[in-house]
């Protein structure tokens, strides 16, 4: 009788744990561990799907707040971060109130996500000097705020040609950056 009790308790604990870990997986559907998922799920993750994302754009009028552009992009579960940054850097905004201030020729060479930190590797053009602090400040905050819309990305590290950028203009980019809401215009 006693051993049955113990077994039942163990079973309940197991069930509860399974429930909890299940919840955690649901909240981060885009993180897939290669090898640990079922094959049919792997096939699914490779499939291109439409995803509605927010791209934080720099306003054309030079005002100091980023503007949110809603855009539908094609992603697979594995490259959602890369696809999002590529959309931000390599496309022009539809609305003429917004502009793309990334230096000419800037390419996104890669984006990886690990332990809540997204590492974005830009081509060397990214570090071209700009007039005044405005463009670089807005551009960096656009990248960080765009990527941190995903719950699995808490901070963003920016590299150029695979190298750490310590200073860009007046900014310190050595450490990964967290979302900065003070650059997003609050809708009144």
């Amino acid at each position: 009788m006693n051993s049955i009790k113990k077994l039942t308790t163990a079973l309940v604990i197991f069930c509860c744990l399974a429930l909890v870990s299940g919840c955690a997986q649901n909240s981060a559907p885009n993180i897939t561990k290669p090898g640990s998922t079922a094959t049919d799920k792997n096939k699914k993750t490779q499939k291109m799907v439409d995803k509605k994302v927010v791209l934080y754009r720099v306003p054309t009028d030079g005002s100091p707040y980023l503007l949110a552009e809603s855009k539908i992009i094609k992603v697979t579960n594995n490259d959602f971060a890369l696809a999002t940054v590529k959309a931000l850097v390599e496309t022009l905004p539809a609305d003429r109130k917004m502009q793309n201030v990334f230096p000419k020729g800037t390419k996104v060479l890669g984006v990886s996500v690990q332990d809540g930190i997204a590492t974005v590797n830009f081509s060397k053009e990214f570090t071209k000097k700009t007039e005044g602090e405005y463009a670089s400040l807005m551009m960096v905050n656009a990248v960080v705020n765009t990527l941190t819309q995903y719950p699995e990305i808490k901070k963003v590290r920016i590299l150029a040609a695979g190298q750490k950028i310590v200073v860009l203009g007046q900014m310190d980019l050595e450490e990964p950056l967290a979302r900065n809401e003070s650059f997003i215009k609050k809708v009144k």
């Binding site: 100091p64 400040l137 200073v167 007046q170 900014m171 310190d172 900065n180 003070s182 650059f183």
Partner: peptide
């Protein structure tokens, strides 16, 4: 008034 804003300026951070 363009506001009080958080930024990662090198001189302030270091």
């Amino acid at each position: 008034d363009l506001g009080v804003r958080e930024a990662n300026f090198y001189v302030n951070k270091r």
